[in-house]
């Protein structure tokens, strides 16, 4: 589904990703861990199509297409979803209008009919239950005045509404208390299917107890320096990153 080959990315002339190669197949869950500033969010942003990054070499292929040729909104309509590490507050833009536009953009792209207000609200109510959000958030501006936990749950709620094929979750677990973490994790698990791939960035093994990954990667200084299965995450939790970095330096 997603093939990243030797991806090099710079921002304002400064190299941030230094040769990432990674394969994600349908139905898989990948976890990316790594020290602060190692390039995890940069990778998610580049995948989602944010402007301002310079891809100096390498390729990204998504379902056989050259992803780097697509605009952010085209990628979204084509099934890529990014849950932001820092969801953005947008004053003056009503949450429910925004979400309806997002849902209908995807539907139009797939050749489906747009949802009217009634059908949309029905869908909203159904999906809100999944992450235990209150309806009144729909009347407010996008993320404005939402608590940290509400913002993160709102991201997963959007994922549930948009039903992406490739979901990138950037630290969706950070800043959540244990109950909220469980709600979010249950939400994500409910969306886990054989057709959908999930890449989640996290600092904490805790999340991986709830959402069990098929693959775990360590990203450091813009490169994947180690990949393994779930046990790698447990080992990282116990021993920190030092030993992986040393192994990498020795190699």
């Amino acid at each position: 589904m997603l093939e990243i080959r030797d991806l090099h990315v710079s921002v304002e002339g400064k190299p941030i990703l230094n040769g990432i190669t990674m394969d994600v197949k349908k139905g898989e869950v990948h976890a990316i861990m790594g020290p602060n500033g190692s390039g995890k969010s940069t990778l998610s942003h580049v995948l989602a199509g944010r402007e301002g990054y310079e891809v100096t070499s390498g390729t990204i292929t998504y379902e056989g297409k050259d992803l780097l040729e697509m605009e952010a909104e085209e990628r979204a309509r084509d099934g890529i979803f990014l849950a932001f590490q820092y969801p953005v507050e947008i004053p003056g833009v009503n949450n429910s209008y925004f979400l309806k536009a997002a849902v209908n953009a995807g539907r139009t792209h797939r050749g489906e009919e747009e949802l009217d207000a009634v059908a949309f609200m029905k869908l909203v109510r159904e999906k809100m239950k999944l992450v235990d959000l209150k309806d009144d958030l729909m009347k407010r501006a996008v993320n404005e005045g939402f608590s940290g936990g509400e913002k993160k749950r709102n991201e997963i709620f959007q994922m549930a509404l948009l039903e992406p094929r490739l979901a990138l979750l950037d630290e969706t677990d950070s800043g959540l208390d244990i109950d909220a973490l469980k709600i979010v994790a249950d939400g994500v698990n409910a969306l886990r299917t054989d057709e959908r791939a999930i890449v989640m960035v996290t600092h904490y093994q805790r999340l991986l107890n709830y959402i069990v990954p098929d693959h775990v990667h360590v990203l450091a200084a813009g490169r994947i320096i180690k990949s393994g299965d779930r046990s790698l995450a447990l080992e990282l939790e116990e021993r920190g990153y030092g030993w992986v970095l040393e192994q990498e330096a020795a190699a």
Partner: peptide, 29 residues
Amino acid sequence: DDNMLFYLRSRGIDKEAARGLLTYGFAQD
């Protein structure tokens, strides 16, 4: 704001419509 624009676009709203929505939102208060 670039962050706002990217957020809207990352949900499938095209660039010009995102600009329009943000402009509208700017005046709302």
